[in-house]
């Protein structure tokens, strides 16, 4: 489903965020990417939907080449990829439903967007997405009135409303408390299992990574240093990925007990 071939990303200023990364993610897999901040996790995820363009190498999603896509092609590819953000990225001053409807924009004609008159079918899809994350009762509430966990579930619903083939989640639980983190991760896992959507999640906490990842990819300085099933990723592996011994900050469970 996702194919990286020798992808390198260099930011202006010479920082090399990804260094010669090659990677295959088959359809339906739930992959967790771990690494220190600055290791290139976020860049890896953002390269997949073209928010960051590779400097060299090729990247295909569902057989379509991202690295050379035109603006219109990129929009088409992105519409098949849902994204979930650390800061939720909801429009705070509008309703939950309007936020979820943003996931339908690629199908809605421009004039309808301008008048905020969405077709009934699209509203239906958005409602179903909200039902799937069990927050439909809040449809007409302003997004700013929700708790962090609720906002992230709206973020997931927005991604689901795209009816995507791939879901990307960039540190989806970093702004949430430990119990809520589990709710969000289980939502992601359930969606991956039930709908078979290929999912790539950035995480920092190793216990969450091991609990929810079918497969774990370790990044260090822009290179893949570990790639294997969650069961193989023991403490030694994480210490290698992080390049230092583990601390309480690396474990959600320990953080919860602090």
């Amino acid at each position: 489903m996702i194919r990286f071939r020798n992808v390198t990303v260099e930011y202006p200023g010479g920082v090399r965020a990804l260094n010669d990364v090659s990677l295959d993610v088959p359809a339906g897999e739930l992959v967790v990417v771990v690494g220190l901040s600055g290791a290139g996790k976020s860049t890896l995820v953002r390269t997949i939907n073209g928010l960051v363009r590779p400097t060299s190498g090729t990247l295909e999603v569902d057989g379509r080449d991202i690295s050379s896509a035109s603006k219109a092609e990129l929009r088409a590819i992105r519409s098949d990829i849902g994204m979930i953000f650390q800061g939720f990225n909801l429009v705070k001053r509008t309703s939950v439903l309007n936020n979820v409807l943003m996931g339908r924009l690629h199908l809605v004609p421009r004039w309808r967007t301008m008048l905020a008159r969405y077709p009934a079918d699209d509203v239906e899809v958005a409602m179903q997405a909200l039902e799937r994350v069990e927050i439909v009762a809040k449809s007409y509430v302003r997004a700013s009135n929700l708790s962090g966990g609720q906002q992230q579930r709206v973020g997931i619903a927005r991604a689901l409303a795209q009816e995507p083939k791939v879901i990307l989640a960039d540190e989806p639980v970093a702004s949430l408390d430990p119990p809520t983190s589990h709710v969000v991760m289980r939502d992601l896992q359930r969606i991956n299992r039930e709908l078979g959507i290929t999912t790539v999640v950035n995480l920092h906490f190793l216990d969450l990574a091991r609990a929810y990842g079918d497969r774990i990819i370790g990044l260090r300085d822009g290179r893949i240093v570990f790639d294997g099933p969650g069961s193989d990723a023991d403490e030694q592996v994480f210490e290698d990925i992080y390049g230092r011994s583990l601390t309480a900050d690396d474990v959600l469970q320990a953080k919860a007990e602090l």
């Binding site: 430990p178 809520t180 589990h182 709710v183 216990d207 969450l208 474990v251």
Partner: peptide, 9 residues
């Protein structure tokens, strides 16, 4: 570190 079920909300 381990994941226990006790923390599930």
């Amino acid at each position: 570190p381990h994941v226990s079920t006790s923390s599930t909300p």
